[in-house]
Amino acid sequence: MRIDERIASRHRDLSPQERRAAATLLEHLDDLATYRAAELASLAGVSKATMSRLFRSLGYADFGEVREQLRESRHGGEPRLLRGGADLPAHLAREAEALRRAVEHPALTPAVELVASARRVLVVGWRNSHPVALHLRQQLAHVRGDVRVAPVPGQVLGEELADVGPGDAIVLVGFRRRPAGFGAFLEAATETGAPVLLLADPTAIEHARRATLWLECSIATELAFDSYAAAMSLVSVLADGVLTACGQGAQDRISGISRTYARLAEIEA
């Protein structure tokens, strides 16, 4: 249980001083890991002994265990406010390293070949992965035909898998904080006989064992929220590779799409 859940479940059993200390913890929940136990006691107006008793009452050995739990929740994608503001140089360095690792991934070349040669491509992504899936579908649709994205609003995925089989390809975007049914969908996707390309961060390592290919891309940052900058860039690199692999046919398709844009006046001149 998270610390806020523990406080809620045991609040009735806390002493008045412990309740006062607990209220301070809840007020500073977003940046709790940046404090020391003595600082929290001072903020609450209680003794360090009272704060220590509170942690034990909540089932923790000490504040160090609380901080470790909070760090783990951030590693799992939960936003956490950073005390003192963002370390932008460190953030930019981490972004650059994430992108470098992603575009140098050994699975990129076979991923390009898979997407370029497939009869049809189904791109799937939920929650924060859905914009990445949409972006990939939009770029691939310029260079090859029969590229779909799922899920679409108001629909489920059973219908989407019904037409997929050997010779097709499924691109599954699955960055952390995935929905509970992610593993079940991946299993159903592999049963279609179509190869599955998984685009995900390192937390998907267990899912990656069932995928045909895994393009690993980190989204961890020095900031409170995950960043999808490297993921979006990787999508562009993947689409660029597919454009090259599809050759003149892709160029002709792009030209035809541009002519349609002009005829329908859909794009600003």
Rank of each mutant, 00 (worst) to 15 (best):
D87G: 01
R94V: 07
H105C: 06
R101P: 00
L108R: 11
G64H: 07
S129Q: 00
L82K: 08
V123P: 01
D146M: 10
P110W: 03
E104T: 14
G84F: 03
L140K: 05
Q17P: 00
L26K: 11
D146W: 12
Q138E: 07
P151V: 11
D87Y: 04
R144M: 09
Y35L: 13
V149G: 00
A118K: 08
L25A: 02
P106E: 08
P131N: 01
R20T: 15
Q69H: 13
F55W: 14
G64D: 06
A61F: 10
G64I: 05
V124L: 07
S42I: 02
A111N: 04
L136H: 08
H28L: 12
L70G: 02
Q139G: 12
L40M: 06
L54P: 08
D31R: 15
L92P: 00
V103L: 03
R144I: 04
E97Q: 08
R120L: 10
E78T: 15
R20C: 10
H135D: 01
G145I: 06
T34R: 05
H142Q: 15
A33Y: 05
G145F: 06
V123I: 08
H142D: 00
L43R: 12
A150Y: 09
L99T: 14
T50Q: 03
A102M: 12
L40P: 02
L114M: 14
K48T: 11
R71Q: 12
R20N: 08
A22Y: 03
H142I: 06
L88Y: 14
A107R: 02
P153T: 11
A90E: 06
L134D: 02
R127V: 07
L88A: 10
A102L: 12
E65N: 02
A133M: 06
G145T: 14
E27Y: 01
R101L: 15
L70C: 02
A38Q: 12
R119D: 08
G77N: 09
A96D: 11
P106T: 04
S15I: 13
P16Y: 13
R119G: 06
S47G: 15
L140I: 09
L82C: 03
E104A: 15
V115P: 07
V143H: 11
R101D: 13
L54W: 09
Q139C: 11
